[in-house]
Design a protein around this nucleic acid. Structure first.
Length: 868
RNA sequence: GCGGACGUGGCGAAAUCGGUAUACGCAAAGCACUUAAAAUGCUUCGGUCAAUAACCUUGCGGGUUCAAGUCCCGCCGUCCGCACCA
């Protein structure tokens, strides 16, 4: 009888509708089983599900299905990170309202996800642009505002004068706006901030407890928070005849030991003193203006060389009244860090050295590496930044860097200048407060009203939500909300006079900072829900590209939600798996347009690859492999592959070769193999069902015992590896298992009742083990074999540990560390028994040739090494 | 520049605590079945070699060890994060 081919398109639809009707993936909050919350980072509804999504959600689904089988009450929801710039860009391009564009994409992508068979609780779905979602976000905002976690301040932004909008650093290309091409200005704007820096220390400490996070991510966050221990030191201004309101300059340093190597003081261009000087001095004014040109990123990216101007001021050295140092205004000093002023020590800081070399300032080494002699230790173009001993530093001479730091600190903390200590210790963080104001339409409105009498007035909670108006136009540059007079104009809730709404919306990172808490009970009032029942998330899965910002913001938000009484927890994500990116080559025409891989064909000639457009045969430039993104058009959509192979094959293939953390370059080679395997399992089960129904006769053979052992061993290995997220190894075990099972059916006549029991168990194990990855095939196979319960709601099988261990084992025998043969011996044999057995091995006797081995190393249950 | 990760067949990769290097898959080649193809099954597949013997082999050079892909030192290369953080 010819076996029909397995038809995934038909079978997958069938099981998807059975799952949906049975509601087994809808999670109840009142369930006595232990909870398990698994979440994959929710997608931005860009249009279609691509292979990166498939990889991410396949991993999450394996975990969800596995944990469900292990008896947990699993929460596995899905939503949409739906606010953001691309919707507005699409609106401009296609004359389609951002809302319409977004919801249309969501419905397409929802269907795509459903056809991939993910075990998601769709009853909890929401989009961040749903009014209900951002209503709660506005409530959260007001609660945080009450608790002092939100404030306004002036801050430097990239301003595009043509678009009349603020640009992110990534949108500034060579100092010009990415769309308008106009030169970007550095402007000061009053912006809303979250006080994340209040939690710098806490966010840093919390990392130590996140032991189920990758070390790499914890390190990245640690560096991002950037804690340093230093000293504020006040330097008194010397009398130069120049009249300024300042009497001193306070600098921040982490290297007070180098104070005798100081050559200059430098202050930031935004330093109040610099601004004061600029009012009187044209040269300084011009310099500051030059630094402000080209946006904030330009000044950072212009790493080429430090620049500065003399202020005309001098300071007095704290340890020597007669020592004067010049004060510069310099582009490389940041106002946002420390006090916006530094003392420069050229010998021991590379930037200070470059600056000194440029402006002819002295370079005096004060730290000497151990063993170096002062006469031949010269600093020219490379600063010495490592540890050593102090020289040329009076009372510090001979001390180590660490000792010298505390000596300087002690002395200056105890030296009173104008009624205050000259120095104070201070811990500084690199982490800055989180600016959330965006001059955009498609985001969550900030629930604030500006009144000319009452100032900043929060919208009363009873007046929420502040709904984003639909009737906006995109016919001119700038934020459409700003031009929407009707929406903007309100009565002040305080005094009743006419007032104005805040027209900025929130950064979309705010939306994704707490969505995981909303899934807990998406249609109830957040305040009334015990989010602590489900949180923290047991396993969070998403791309490494979110290792810093998203994860840090979410950690901050959890703390903010604790302070505002929503939770008692601080950390939202207990376990974290950062999955690698799915990459693809990019292709660009000679006109600089990006082309999709579907629009080209690639030929290989003499080892050179050449890409041509399918439409007209034009040569296309093959550009580097990059993360799949819409802008580079190298996205591979899942639906075409889904149509040809089915969901199970894609899921299996996405997880089969590489470990989850690794980046992969998308290639379809191999997907045929994955599909062959699907067909192979199908044939195996069809044949098995047939054989198991046949007449009984004959008796059990030893092969059955071997099969039982292999089944239990495989089950153990697969269970262990799923728990470690080693999906590629899970798949390798299953390939081996299926291959052995096939041989078994080929060679054995399954006529004995007991043997059939073993076979049946093996098949049940197999179906259970493939189910997390290939759930549809598992259900179909189970049905063929007469299983009555859905695999999706069946328990994970239990292996017998005794069957996973053999009584005898094969130990490799080495001579001088090289393998020469094996010794088959009982597993529990002791060293002396093993030694006797080894010495009687034929190949060893002939190699020894009468000699006596120097040593025999026996590692029980592992290896034997005979040293000659 | 600083911090981190990595380097194993033609390719994706495996090797858990220092203990049989190359599991599993892809690609390739051969055979069987077939009128033929597809599908399927079987076999081979790191290198040198006539060889199933022997030797070599985890980027390169050293070292520690009975034993090194794994640990240490020094190079070379690739990737990622931060980028004037005083």
């Amino acid at each position: 009888m010819a076996i029909k081919r397995y038809n995934p398109n038909f079978v997958e639809k069938k099981w998807q509708s059975i799952w949906e009707q049975s509601g087994i993936f809808q999670t109840k909050n009142d369930d006595s089983r232990r909870k398990y919350y698994v979440l994959e980072m929710f997608p931005y509804p860009s249009g279609r599900i691509h292979m990166g999504h498939v990889r991410n959600y396949s991993m999450g689904d394996v975990v969800a299905r596995f944990k469900r089988a292990c008896g947990f009450n699993v929460l596995h929801p899905m939503g949409w990170d739906a606010f953001g710039l691309p919707a507005e860009n699409a609106a401009l391009r296609n004359k389609l309202h951002p809302k319409e564009w977004t919801y249309r994409n969501i419905s397409i992508m929802r269907e795509q996800l459903k056809s991939l068979g993910f075990s998601l609780d769709w009853s909890r779905e929401f989009a961040t642009c749903d009014v209900d979602y951002y209503h709660h976000q506005q409530l959260l905002f007001l609660d945080m505002y009450e608790k002092g976690l939100i404030f306004r301040k002036k801050s430097k932004v990239n301003w595009d004068p043509v678009e009349q909008t603020v640009l992110a650093n990534e949108q500034v290309i060579d100092g010009c706006g990415w769309r308008s091409g106009a030169q970007v200005e550095r402007r000061e704007l009053t912006q809303w901030f979250f006080r994340i820096s209040d939690y710098s220390e806490d966010l840093l400490r919390g990392l130590d407890r996140l032991d189920q996070w990758p070390d790499k991510v914890r390190l990245m966050q640690r560096n991002w928070i950037g804690k340093s221990d230093g000293l504020f030191v006040r330097w008194q201004l010397a009398d130069t005849g120049l009249s300024v309101t300042f009497r001193e300059i306070e600098v921040y340093t982490t290297r007070p030991d180098t104070i005798f190597g100081a050559a200059f003081i430098a202050i930031a261009v935004d330093h109040p003193l610099a601004k004061e000087l600029a009012r009187k001095d044209k040269v300084i004014e011009d310099f500051i203006e030059e630094c402000n040109r080209g946006g904030i990123s330009a000044i950072i990216l212009e790493k080429s060389e430090p620049k500065g101007v003399k202020s005309g001021l001098f300071v007095i050295h704290p340890f020597n009244e007669s020592w004067r140092l010049p004060v510069y205004i310099a582009n490389f000093v940041l106002m946002e860090y420390g006090s916006g002023a530094i003392f420069g020590c050229p010998a021991h800081n590379q930037y200070d050295l470059d600056f000194s070399n440029k402006y002819g300032l002295p370079v005096n080494p004060v730290v000497l590496p151990t063993g170096a002699s002062p006469s031949d230790f010269l600093i020219r173009n490379t600063a010495y930044v490592k540890d050593g001993f102090l020289v040329n530093s009076f009372f510090l001479n001979g001390l180590t860097v660490k000792e010298a730091c505390s000596e300087v600190r002690n002395r200056l903390e105890n030296k009173i200048v104008e009624g205050r200590p000259q120095a104070r210790r201070s811990i500084q963080f690199r982490l800055r407060d989180w600016s959330i104001s965006r001059q955009r339409y498609w985001g969550c409105p900030i629930p604030i009203i500006f009144c000319k009498h009452c100032g900043v007035v929060p919208v009363p909670k009873s007046d929420l939500p502040v709904i984003l108006p639909d009737d906006v136009t995109f016919d001119r540059p700038g934020n459409p909300l700003f031009f929407h007079e009707e929406w903007k104009g309100v009565q002040c809730p305080n005094c009743g006079d006419s007032a104005c709404r805040e027209t900025d919306t929130m950064d979309t990172f705010v939306d994704s900072s707490w969505y995981y808490a909303r899934f807990v009970a998406p249609f109830e009032n957040l305040k009334d829900v015990s989010i602590d029942h489900w949180l923290p998330i047991d396993q969070y899965i998403g791309g490494v590209e979110h290792a810093i910002l998203h994860l840090l913001y979410a950690r901050f938000f959890m703390r903010a939600m604790k302070k505002t009484g929503y939770t008692s927890l601080e950390e939202p994500f207990k376990g974290l798996l950062t999955q690698g990116m799915v990459m693809h080559e990019t292709y660009r025409t000679s006109d600089g347009l990006w082309v999709s891989p579907l629009e080209i064909s690639i030929q290989e000639r003499n080892g050179n690859r050449c890409a041509r457009l399918l439409s007209n045969g034009d040569i296309v430039e093959i550009r580097p492999v990059e993360k799949m993104s819409k802008s580079k058009r190298n996205v591979v959509d899942s639906s075409r592959i889904l149509a040809s192979y089915g969901a199970d094959t894609i899921r299996w293939f996405m997880l089969s070769d590489s470990p989850p953390e690794r980046d992969i370059i998308w290639s379809e080679s191999g997907i045929e193999g994955a599909h062959r395997f699907v067909q192979r399992i199908w044939r195996l089960v069809i044949r098995a069902a047939d054989v198991l129904r046949g007449p009984l006769s004959g008796s059990k053979t030893g092969a059955a015992d071997d099969l039982a052992k292999l089944s239990h061993r495989t089950l153990k290995a697969v269970t262990d590896d799923i728990e470690k997220f080693a999906f590629n190894r899970v798949i390798a075990h299953l390939y081996n298992f299926v291959s052995t099972l096939s041989h078994f059916f080929h060679n054995e006549k399954l006529c004995d009742q007991e043997m059939r029991g073993v076979v049946r168990e093996s098949l049940d194990f197999l179906i259970a083990m493939i189910a997390p990855i290939m759930p549809h095939l598992a259900e179909e196979c189970n049905e063929i074999l007469g299983g009555e319960q859905l695999i999706a709601s069946s328990p994970w099988p239990v292996f017998d540990i005794a069957l996973t261990i053999d009584d005898t084992m094969r130990m490799p025998v080495q001579i001088n560390g090289k393998k020469c043969g094996d010794l088959v011996i009982s597993r529990n044999a002791d060293k002396s028994k093993i030694e006797r057995a080894v010495l009687s091995l034929d190949f060893l006797i002939s190699r020894l040739n009468g000699r006596i081995p120097k040593r025999i190393i026996i590692v029980p249950q592992r290896i034997i090494n005979v040293v000659l």
